[in-house]
Design a binder for these strands. Sequence first.
DNA 1: TTTTTATGCATAAGAAATTTATGTATGTTT
DNA 2: AAACATACATAAATTTCTTATGCATAAAAA
Lengths: 112, 112
Amino acid sequence: MSNSKLYKGSLSTIILKLLSKEDKMYGYEITQRVKELTKGELKITEGALYPALHKLEADGLLEVEMQKVDNRLRKYYKLTQKGTTETVSKLQELERFMETMNGLMNPKPSLG
Amino acid sequence: MSNSKLYKGSLSTIILKLLSKEDKMYGYEITQRVKELTKGELKITEGALYPALHKLEADGLLEVEMQKVDNRLRKYYKLTQKGTTETVSKLQELERFMETMNGLMNPKPSLG
DNA sequence: TTTTTATGCATAAGAAATTTATGTATGTTT
DNA sequence: AAACATACATAAATTTCTTATGCATAAAAA
């Protein structure tokens, strides 16, 4: 069974959501966390992740803190104030999308 | 309230799903049906719809039948055999995506 | 009666968000 | 010694939209 397709536009929401409960995370950690939480269903590729993180940072939603662990460099990201606000908005947007799609896929027969 | 964002990759699934219950539909009809079913939440633009229909046809999932109604030309699309099979697959994919996202957004605390 | 709105199709340019491929470097396991 | 895991990064190509524009007929509104 191949892994689930990532609908375009959902990655930044995933990143923000994870950071909203973890205080700070680094890139590789995010890929592993997603793999765990989805039981391997979803795999975030590096080619998608790093540019996404850079964009979120450029947009002022994340801030960076470098840290050296075991002679390896980690780039920790955490939500800014703006990022926290945007996270709420993104989650609502995802919620709406899912409800909308549900309405399309399982339409209630009109009683007219 | 602005209308819902369309996550990229979901349009073809929407089209296929509608056609799976309607036997045949034309482009404009699809845009209106989506607007109805989602109460205006989702608006399919023509710039997205027509290229999507052409691609589905090129991929052999849809077949075309022209029809003139009230001196206006309509291009009716209907599912091919292959299209019917693909619809099932696309719907499962969407279902999986939604469950996966739900698992990410509302993770069950591990009992370990 | 002229303009707007609705119906119906289409394409082209650009933007956004991926995938796929590749590169660098350290540390651990086989 | 080779393979895998950790950790970051970018570039080219692809997919899938948005936005803008165009054509044409018909009905409604101004």
